[in-house]
Design a protein around this nucleic acid. Structure first.
Lengths: 234, 234
DNA sequence: AACAATTTTGCAGGGTGTGCATATTTGCAT
DNA sequence: ATGCAAATATGCACACCCTGCAAAATTGTT
């Protein structure tokens, strides 16, 4: 029956909603407990109890305990990708990437009530910070593909191959390798965001993040040449 | 007594040698067993037995089981840093970084007997690959400082803004925050190497790695502008 | 109301990582 | 050579992480 497939696709029913609610409850409980007692002192049992499920159920949602502290925004990567694809046609790839990432960071800013807690937790235990980076790294290939598609649609349409037509999960190995340039763009963009955030965290300038962010991408656009006398931009 | 300090510094005695030998034996046993049975199926007990020590002793040398698969080259970062500092005076920071990293990669090429095994292990279990990247990330701040020193000795000494003295939480390291530009340079350099290696691994061109590497840095020097008609590619 | 699919939960078990006390080894002084 | 103090290795106990497996409980459909 085709109904089965449709059901899978459009399953916005009570089941899926409840699952997402449980996942969110677990993640939020984890972050909240970690902010209070330190991430290392928060057990799976405590998290699941705070979320109202059994410890065993925790592992039905996260592959490891640390993932609960890290997997806060599963949709972030998808939003950046969409932003890249929807960028105006006259923007360079680097500009498209910069604006998409800036929009996503602005989006996060709005939810800083929870995000500040999260940032504090990551900052207090470097172990989790590296895991967070690793999680972002997983999205990098997807971002590279989006950039490749964006570039292909720009100056000239490349080969027809429209959609990679890959299934979401399973074994991701037999995957088309994106071209070198979009791959590099994605990796450098991620590194740029990381540096901007870390630098902005190191100094407590709450207001000047946008300036730091734009300056980083200005450096990139200038070929990382040595900055001319550095007019600080405040 | 000063004798104590001297002893600590010059302790090249039997003690220190034996410790390093044990550490090396554990790491090599770990990689060798992982190459044969897969990293996930290698227990701490098996590693320590192969190295001739007790399982408890393993954790006196590595904080976690995975570290035994990752901690192969602790000197790599130091070599790159020295290469940056010893670069010719007329080289741009990006060129200095590129050449230092190229030299280090060439160095590694020579020891490919062990490194190939190691690469195979990391390739077969992405979990360890991210840990390896995290380890490299730890060196990034040191590299940024080396780059800052190199830049400062180059064109001109820049504005003061010394150390924001940021020690955010707990017992953090009261470490001076490098300037934004060298920090970005270090991060982007690391990302560039990673992309070059991954791209070169994806296609089995054993010989063209240098070409890929130089092309990546050419992209960076060109401000990541869209490549003109893209020669190469296979 | 009955049924099938999905999710939750308990339970057992192996592996990881740590603290602590003890035994062994190493370097040095006598 | 012998004894001593520091460093290291080891055994043991224990908490925690994570995974199958099978039995409930829940949900959507007929």
């Amino acid at each position: 029956m085709q109904d089965v497939l449709e059901k899978k696709a459009a399953e916005s029913g009570l089941r899926e909603r409840k699952k997402q609610a449980t996942r969110a409850a677990l993640a939020e409980a984890a972050v909240r407990l970690a902010a209070e007692h330190g991430a290392e002192n928060v057990t799976v049992e405590a998290i699941s109890e705070a979320a109202g499920v059994s410890p065993r159920t925790f592992f039905n949602y996260f592959d490891s305990r640390d993932d609960a502290f890290v997997m806060i925004d599963a949709e972030s990567g998808a939003r950046v990708r969409r932003g890249v694809l929807e960028a105006p046609a006259d923007a360079s790839p680097l500009e498209a990437l910069r604006d998409a990432m800036a929009a996503e960071l602005a989006e996060i800013e709005q939810r800083h009530e929870v995000w500040d807690l999260h940032a504090g937790v990551l900052h207090r235990s470097p172990h989790l910070l590296t895991r967070s980076l690793a999680a972002h790294l997983a999205d990098e290939l997807d971002l590279a593909e989006a950039l490749a598609e964006r570039i292909g649609a720009g100056p000239r349409s490349r080969c027809g191959c429209p959609s990679p037509a890959r299934s979401a999960s399973g074994d991701g190995q037999p995957r088309a390798v994106p071209d070198l340039y979009p791959r590099l763009l994605a990796a450098v963009g991620g590194a740029a965001v990381r540096v901007a955030v870390e630098y902005w965290c190191a100094r407590q300038d709450r207001l000047a993040f946008t300036a730091v962010f734009r300056q980083v991408f200005a450096h990139l656009a200038a070929g990382l040449s040595v900055p001319p006398e550095e007019t600080g931009r405040r």
